[in-house]
Design a protein around this nucleic acid. Structure first.
Lengths: 250, 250
DNA sequence: CCGGGTATACCAAGAAATGGGGATGGTTTG
DNA sequence: CAAACCATCCCCATTTCTTGGTATACCCGG
């Protein structure tokens, strides 16, 4: 069958899913049509004051429980790698995206023992709003069919869009914003400066810097500077390069 | 020609582009092969002392200048819509994604008068790092060929990955800088926990947590926890999702 | 005009982080 | 086998952060 029509057909079923169950059914059918043994879609909305998430998968029950335990410890290399890739990627390419820790290798091995041998993951991120990933997975006795990965890429992204619709789109203005001065203080803090040092840099008092950071923390409803920095980073108010380039220049 | 081989061929040329000029050439060829009149790729790495962005396009010179002026003023509806879509979108779908202002409509109209009648844009975002969009555009006397949009979607994302590479991105480190236990302590710190709390969570003493964090800081040669967290995040040892999921589950 | 937001400045106390030092026992690697 | 790494535990002093409170002046929009 021509790939175009296959893609259109699978995308159509997914786009028309009105409930989580229908999405499950459509994704299950898509995985089967594409020669995968399992699928998993995880979508997390983060912006604003009403976080929400959606997880649909057809993993073996034993693996699903193991996975949750690994996940709490931050041991999901696939998800982390998805923050480094604009395109879908095969799991065997993980070391090209992130360094694998011992815990990561362990997780992949346990997955293999539980019928999760390899996969192709489609990650997507919307700044300040949400992230998601849709994975198509093969078992130990299956072969990754390279010729369907383009279809999987498009279908996976369509599925993430469907998940976004089901979860509900966060209000565009829902997330906190910082004033320019607050943002500057957060950025210098991320660069490792104390409040006193930031004050000297910006030509204001240390107390004023403290006040700006306090206001910024209140805005995001977090209680420490590391969480504040991470919020600003995720929302795109500051970027890795703001911090890294400055470090390397000094 | 079968779409799969067309996609593979175009993606191959783009992936092998070593300079901005080669990327231009490859994208120009891709646009022509797909029946588009123009293309434009914009990639913006967030922040940095030297703003690292890349813009390659073959727009008519008159429109290019107008476009840059609109874009600098933050008045590009296509870019704004790209923050709301996980898949490529046609410009005629813009009102489904964002409310269009009078200025937006004016811009689209001026574009039409300058040979930019409609387009298909592939947006991509990486949390904390960068955003980009690759557009394929038709003029007033052309028809959008729906049957090539899947190809355009994949090729566009591959082009953005190439742009990322050209702008510069650190290769992943082979071996993780931190031990598994150190990484865990950093992750819980990023989740906003004090050393004492991390100790309770992991079943070890507060002093042990402090020791792990100290060793981790030494590994990265940084002097405070925010810098440590950012290094681990940048390396891909912890992910935004690892941090955020936990915040909102508790 | 008034209220809200922004920028600036100050105070205090308690909690937490950082840098420096020490140690033991087990595992891995060259 | 020896060195390095990993995980665990302890001590101390100093600095910094967080939370709570106070205030003034300016700007902008309804």
């Amino acid at each position: 069958m021509k790939q175009y029509y296959l893609t259109e057909e699978l995308a159509f079923e997914i786009t028309n899913a009105l409930t989580q169950d229908e999405l499950f059914t459509a994704l299950s059918a898509a995985a089967e049509r594409l020669g995968f043994d399992h699928f998993a879609l995880a979508y997390d909305r983060r912006g604003g004051s009403t976080p929400a998430s959606l997880l649909v998968h057809d993993y073996p029950a034993a693996w699903a429980q193991v996975y949750v335990d690994f996940d709490l410890g931050g041991a999901d290399p696939v998800r982390r790698a998805g923050e480094r890739s604009m395109t879908g990627f095969e799991w065997r390419s993980l070391p090209d995206l992130i360094p694998l820790t011992k815990g990561d290798r362990q997780m992949l091995e346990v997955g293999r023992e539980n019928g999760i041998a390899d996969g192709f993951t489609v990650p997507r991120h919307l700044p300040g709003e949400a992230s998601g990933a849709c994975s198509f997975v093969i078992g130990p006795n299956s072969r990754m069919q390279e010729e369907v990965l383009h279809v999987a890429e498009i279908v996976g992204a369509v599925a993430l869009s469907a998940a976004r619709r089901l979860v509900g789109v966060a209000p565009p203005k829902g997330r906190p914003t910082l004033s320019e001065r607050q943002r500057e203080c957060v950025l210098w803090t991320a660069r490792g400066k104390t409040a006193s040092e930031v004050g000297a840099i910006l030509g204001i008092s240390e107390e004023t810097v403290i006040q700006h950071l306090k206001t910024a923390r209140d805005r995001y409803d977090v209680h420490c500077r590391q969480m504040l920095i991470l919020c600003a980073l995720f929302d795109g108010l500051i970027g890795f390069a703001d911090i890294y380039d400055w470090w390397h220049d000094h």
